[in-house]
Simulated assay, not measured.
Amino acid sequence: MTDGIDNAKRAMRADLRERRQQRSAAALDAAEEGVKAQLDRLVDDLGVRSMSCFLSTTTEPGTREFIRDAVQRGIRVLLPITRADGLLDWAVAEADADVTEGIFGMPEPVADVLSPLAVNDVDLLVIPAAAVDRTGMRLGWGRGYFDKTIGSMEQCPPVYAVIFDSELVDEVPRDLHDQPVDGVVTPTRTVSLTH
């Protein structure tokens, strides 16, 4: 990665992180409710029976209510577990499973661990992002886990990033290894993107 791109990504992430930390609890609750409605509609529209999602942090658009409800509806939801080698293991979500702190402080399920290959049979990938541009390029949080996962899949299903409305932007800094997404889910809408 060139220094210019690296610096631009770092600056954009810092700005987005600060904006997220300034959101009120009421705004975050409303965002989670909106994201749940959008994800419910997307899952129904795509006929999803198996998918991946992520356990949201306290400053992200919430996914936890959606995950709980999806599990109760009989959808198999895989949750990521970070590994030191840069790959993701997976665990099947359970409605009342315990949550622990992963390698980088991200919430992860306490459950039986499945290999990185477990995600190969899902109908939909729902992943975190700092921002996404209108061509589908995603700015992650800098560890590369989801870029590696998407880039390694032989037959990648649709990939949607969960962001706040203001984080769908005109352009994000990009490098060769960065992987695009097919769309974004925000608290107010689901947008399909072409790349």
Rank of each mutant, 00 (worst) to 15 (best):
residue 1 M to I: 04
residue 2 T to E: 14
residue 2 T to Q: 11
residue 4 G to H: 09
residue 7 N to G: 04
residue 10 R to Y: 00
residue 15 D to C: 01
residue 17 R to F: 03
residue 19 R to H: 09
residue 21 Q to F: 02
residue 22 Q to F: 00
residue 22 Q to P: 00
residue 23 R to T: 01
residue 26 A to S: 12
residue 30 A to R: 15
residue 30 A to K: 13
residue 31 A to K: 09
residue 31 A to I: 09
residue 35 V to D: 09
residue 38 Q to S: 11
residue 39 L to W: 11
residue 39 L to V: 12
residue 40 D to Y: 03
residue 41 R to S: 14
residue 42 L to N: 10
residue 47 G to R: 05
residue 47 G to W: 04
residue 49 R to W: 01
residue 51 M to Y: 03
residue 52 S to C: 09
residue 53 C to M: 10
residue 55 L to V: 14
residue 58 T to G: 01
residue 58 T to A: 15
residue 59 T to N: 15
residue 61 P to Y: 08
residue 61 P to H: 13
residue 62 G to M: 03
residue 62 G to V: 10
residue 63 T to P: 07
residue 64 R to G: 00
residue 70 A to M: 11
residue 73 R to Y: 07
residue 74 G to W: 14
residue 79 L to G: 04
residue 80 P to Q: 08
residue 82 T to P: 10
residue 82 T to C: 12
residue 84 A to C: 03
residue 87 L to P: 00
residue 87 L to D: 11
residue 92 V to A: 05
residue 92 V to I: 15
residue 93 A to G: 10
residue 93 A to F: 07
residue 94 E to H: 13
residue 96 D to K: 07
residue 97 A to E: 10
residue 100 T to S: 15
residue 100 T to V: 09
residue 103 I to N: 08
residue 105 G to K: 06
residue 107 P to Q: 12
residue 108 E to Q: 14
residue 111 A to N: 11
residue 111 A to Y: 00
residue 112 D to G: 06
residue 113 V to A: 07
residue 113 V to T: 13
residue 114 L to D: 10
residue 115 S to A: 15
residue 118 A to K: 07
residue 120 N to T: 06
residue 120 N to A: 12
residue 121 D to S: 15
residue 122 V to M: 03
residue 126 V to S: 06
residue 128 P to D: 02
residue 128 P to E: 01
residue 130 A to D: 09
residue 134 R to P: 03
residue 134 R to S: 02
residue 135 T to Q: 15
residue 136 G to F: 06
residue 137 M to Q: 14
residue 139 L to V: 01
residue 139 L to Y: 05
residue 141 W to V: 00
residue 141 W to Q: 08
residue 141 W to H: 15
residue 142 G to I: 04
residue 143 R to C: 03
residue 143 R to D: 04
residue 143 R to F: 06
residue 144 G to D: 09
residue 145 Y to T: 00
residue 147 D to I: 02
residue 147 D to F: 07
residue 148 K to A: 11
residue 150 I to C: 08
residue 151 G to V: 08
residue 153 M to H: 05
residue 154 E to Q: 06
residue 155 Q to G: 01
residue 156 C to D: 01
residue 157 P to K: 08
residue 158 P to W: 03
residue 158 P to S: 07
residue 159 V to H: 02
residue 161 A to H: 11
residue 162 V to I: 14
residue 162 V to P: 04
residue 162 V to L: 10
residue 163 I to A: 02
residue 165 D to Y: 11
residue 167 E to N: 10
residue 168 L to N: 11
residue 169 V to F: 06
residue 174 R to P: 03
residue 175 D to M: 07
residue 176 L to K: 10
residue 176 L to Q: 11
residue 176 L to M: 10
residue 177 H to E: 06
residue 178 D to C: 09
residue 179 Q to T: 08
residue 181 V to L: 06
residue 181 V to G: 06
residue 182 D to N: 15
residue 184 V to L: 12
residue 189 R to H: 14
residue 189 R to N: 14
residue 191 V to R: 14
residue 194 T to Y: 07
residue 194 T to R: 14
